[in-house]
Design a protein around this nucleic acid. Structure first.
Length: 228
DNA sequence: TGGATGATCGTC
DNA sequence: ACGATCATCCAA
């Protein structure tokens, strides 16, 4: 029996947090997919995510992850407990949002790549002028802008009901989930740790990083001319 | 201290 | 295919 203290930040043990601690990053990503992230009047249903792991000696080493070099002032919340926001600035322009996974000390997170606006359409229209609702939260930078989240939200516990940003899970059946390689990463470009809801119009386009090595090809696909 | 670097995005 | 734009990291 866990008493609820209004305003208490760490007494609230949601089952989801345990799941996010214990699951592999790709399983955590599937748990986050389909859920709803709310901030003020805006609520977004997450329709596309990517899993990221930890440093070289961790349980799920991932050279494409921000955790790869070990803890730094920027990424340290990814080494903290699961269920917190890791927000980073991409290319000086975009504020991209993750929900952390894995137990404290390990490093891991789920990047939120695309979402459907389910509440707060008026505010969204003002934040994304001239952008159709399907496109408002397509892509991680656009999602962050649509929700109104910036770097100052880094570290916020989204499983604490007293937080200004909260997450409510609604896992999709496996049959509704598609997967493929992560977008834009220069390393581990062939790891299929990107997941999306089949048929969702808000899912972002796949773009392989120009810095990534040539795609892995199945032996039966080899042409012998090196491609291109 | 300062130069290089992106888990991006929209346009060219 | 390219440029915008800046927190962060690392070399020195």
């Amino acid at each position: 029996m866990t008493p609820r203290h209004p305003g208490a930040s760490s007494g609230d043990s949601a089952p989801l947090r345990d799941l996010l601690r214990e699951a592999a990053p790709d399983e955590a990503a599937r748990m986050v997919l389909g859920g709803t992230l709310s901030h003020g009047p805006v609520a977004l249903r997450i329709v596309e995510v990517e899993a990221y792991g930890g440093p070289p000696e961790s349980v799920f080493p991932d050279a494409a992850a921000h955790t790869w070099p070990g803890p730094t002032p920027r990424n340290h919340v990814m080494f903290g407990d699961a269920g917190h926001l890791y927000v980073y600035l991409s290319h000086g322009i975009h504020q991209c949002v993750n929900i952390t996974c894995r137990p404290p000390g390990e490093g891991g997170g789920v990047l939120l790549r695309a979402a459907r606006v389910v509440e707060g359409h008026e505010i969204v229209a003002s934040r994304r002028p001239g952008i159709g609702v399907d496109r408002a939260a397509r892509g991680p930078g656009n999602l962050g802008r649509t929700l109104g989240i910036d770097l100052s939200f880094r570290g916020m516990d989204v499983l604490d009901s007293s937080s200004s940003v909260t997450f409510r899970p609604d896992p999709a059946p496996d049959g509704d989930i598609r997967s493929g390689p992560r977008v834009g990463v220069s390393r581990e470009a062939d790891r299929h740790w990107r997941f999306w809801l089949a048929g969702a119009r808000e899912v972002s386009a796949y773009r392989r990083s120009a810095r990534a090595p040539a795609p892995e090809r199945h032996v039966s696909d080899v042409r012998g001319d090196g491609g291109q």
